[in-house]
């Protein structure tokens, strides 16, 4: 979803950048108006309001920001949110890359079946998938049954651990990574690999020198997508994890719904936004955001 939304303006500016000759300059700008207006109204203004609240609710001060960095709980939750997102992104990438490779390189029932599996997974609600893990990892679930069937005795506690929480989030986000990789890999011309082979490259070398570099935009695209969605995760860590796995959006929700502390909640949201922007800025410095969409 997030990918589709952010991709839209990028493609919209494509045709607008083509010069249309003198006098035609106003048309592209007019065409841009609805999208720009929507972005300003629905995105820039609300974020501005959140920023304002973080400094002014209940009174004008920097107290909320001081509190975030003075209370160890909050810095730890912030750190944990980024560390968890990074872990999930790396695991997703390792699992998704071979899968996307097979789906994009083959053109038979195997690739079709795999693609349908990924799509069905993608379309199943994440609450449903989270509850499914509660059953699978539960003490009456199949994992515990197999463990006991093999005579290992009482099964170890799988549910309500950081492991379960990470597993659940990885499962939910894996389709995003697969689809991002697949869309790039599908466009790689198979003739390039044949050309490499004809010049004497073994399959491994051809993969490393030709396929891997060409698939990097997909890697970057998928990683950013998974990482940023993961930063906002909420229900899955609550249901599968421990209180130590608390993510930052849980904290925001608690402050808004239980304590009506909108100023503090806004400050947390602003810190998350700034931290995310810094990550993206570093990425832009070394890789370039324009490569994000292939």
């Amino acid at each position: 979803m997030a990918g589709v939304v952010t991709a839209a303006p990028a493609t919209a500016t494509g045709p607008a950048a083509v010069p249309q000759g003198p006098g035609a300059g106003a048309v592209p700008w007019l065409l841009l108006m609805p999208a720009t207006a929507a972005l300003v109204l629905l995105f820039v203004l609300p974020i501005g309001y959140v920023l304002l609240l973080s400094f002014t609710d209940p009174q004008v001060s920097l107290a909320h920001y001081q509190r975030i960095f003075a209370v160890p709980l909050y810095t730890r939750i912030l750190f944990n949110t980024f560390a968890t997102s990074l872990t999930v992104t790396v695991i997703c990438l390792l699992l998704a890359y071979p899968l996307a490779y097979v789906i994009s390189r083959r053109n038979d029932w195997i690739s079709l079946t795999l693609l349908i599996c990924v799509a069905v997974c993608f379309w199943t609600g994440f609450i449903v998938r989270t509850y499914a893990w509660l059953v699978i990892l539960g003490n009456k679930g199949p994992v515990a049954a197999v463990w006991q069937g093999l005579g290992f005795g009482a099964p170890p506690q799988l549910l309500f651990t950081s492991f379960a929480s990470t597993l659940g989030m990885t499962h939910i986000l894996l389709p995003y990574m697969v689809l991002a990789l697949y869309s790039v890999m599908k466009k790689i011309d198979p003739n390039l690999l044949r050309a490499a082979a004809s010049l004497g490259a073994r399959p491994n070398a051809a993969f490393r020198a030709v396929f891997l570099p060409l698939s990097l935009p997909g890697v970057v695209n998928g990683s950013i997508l998974v990482f940023t969605i993961c930063l906002g995760f909420f229900v899955t860590p609550i249901l599968l994890g421990t209180p130590k796995d608390m993510m930052i959006s849980q904290l925001v929700n608690q402050q808004i719904e239980e304590l009506l502390a909108w100023g503090f909640a806004s400050a947390i949201a602003v810190v998350l936004l700034v931290a995310t922007s810094i990550v993206l800025a570093i990425y832009n410095r070394f890789v370039g955001l324009d490569r994000l969409w292939g």
Partner: peptide, 14 residues
């Protein structure tokens, strides 16, 4: 006092 109690409780939990 709920804000403070909630904060301390969350800290203790984590």
């Amino acid at each position: 006092r709920l804000g403070q109690i909630r904060e301390r409780f969350a800290q203790w939990l984590a």
